[in-house]
């Protein structure tokens, strides 16, 4: 276990140049809303970054910019090196599965769209399903699954292409607390095994502290980065961490920052 932690630290140092940088990024929608204003942010390889903030602070917009689902109005996003389109996996707020397709077919989809046949994709798909503990549900259709299981399928689908960066847009917001905790644990386990870079959007302080190596607190109107915090707690984190005083203290500090960020919004109002 210690070995794993050491590995992670290594990789963090190795990637001195950030994997991805926001350089003065702004996004204004056609209806005049400024979703992001002058955002400067570095995401390093192997980071687990949470974007934390009230609704309307542009955190989802930032995620869509990284995914190239949207383009910035001003400034630019710089990637360390030319990475192909394949480098990004996206987990949406809802499971967003094809309701008519089996669990297997849903996870196969990203590979299928890249021209990988069912036969060739089977090992990768089944391995991913095993990772999210759904290997026995390959033939089920989404409506036969619980909310948490659907989310697992969604994560497996995002991971099946082995992306360098996994983007998650409040993926567990609609789940009950017990399921959310379980999925938090599983996600961290997956992150440590696969060593991808994670950008996680959430409005839950507790979730962000539990998961992240870094928390970017954002403020709204206009959406901007308010504080960039490092979470000083070693991985792997488990249930013991969740009930530790360190965790409570970190949550308190993050929560304080968040409330200052939310007040800041009131002050800057014209």
């Amino acid at each position: 276990m210690l070995q794993k932690v050491a590995d992670r630290d290594d990789s963090g140092q190795r990637g001195t140049a950030p994997l991805l940088s926001f350089k003065g990024v702004g996004k204004v929608f056609s209806n005049g809303v400024t979703a992001l204003d002058d955002v400067n942010l570095d995401v390093r390889e192997g980071d687990f970054v949470s974007l934390l903030g009230p609704s309307g602070c542009g955190k989802s917009t930032a995620l869509r910019l990284i995914a190239r689902l949207s383009t910035p109005t001003s400034g630019q996003l710089e990637w360390r090196k030319a990475l192909g389109d394949d480098c990004v996996g996206f987990v949406f707020q809802e499971p967003t599965l094809l309701p008519w397709a089996s669990v297997f077919d849903n996870v196969w989809l990203p590979l299928r769209l890249r021209g990988v046949s069912r036969l060739k994709a089977t090992p990768a798909v089944m391995e991913m399903l095993a990772r999210v503990h759904l290997e026995n549900f390959a033939d089920a259709v989404p409506r036969e699954l619980s909310g948490g299981m659907k989310m697992r399928v969604s994560i497996a689908r995002a991971m099946v292409t082995k992306p360098r960066v996994l983007l998650m847009d409040e993926p567990f917001a609609a789940l009950d607390e017990i399921t959310r905790f379980k999925l938090n644990n599983d996600l961290l386990e997956l992150w440590q095994q696969e060593r991808f870079t994670a950008v996680f959007v959430t409005h839950s302080v507790f979730e962000s502290v539990f998961l992240s190596s870094r928390i970017v607190v954002m403020a709204a109107k206009p959406g901007r980065v308010f504080r960039d915090m490092t979470v000083d707690a070693p991985y792997p984190r488990d249930e013991a961490f969740r009930t530790s005083s360190t965790y409570a203290e970190l949550c308190r500090r993050t929560s304080d920052e968040l409330s200052v960020a939310m007040d800041a919004r009131v002050e800057t109002r014209p």
């Binding site: 190239r68 689902l69 389109d85 949406f92 967003t96 299928r112 769209l113």
Partner: peptide
């Protein structure tokens, strides 16, 4: 579903693939 269309875009689906799948 808009998100599903985004998913197909993210995965570089062609117009034909999006129609068919």
């Amino acid at each position: 579903d808009r998100n599903l269309r985004d998913l197909f875009r993210l995965n570089g689906a062609t117009r034909w693939q999006e129609l068919w799948h």
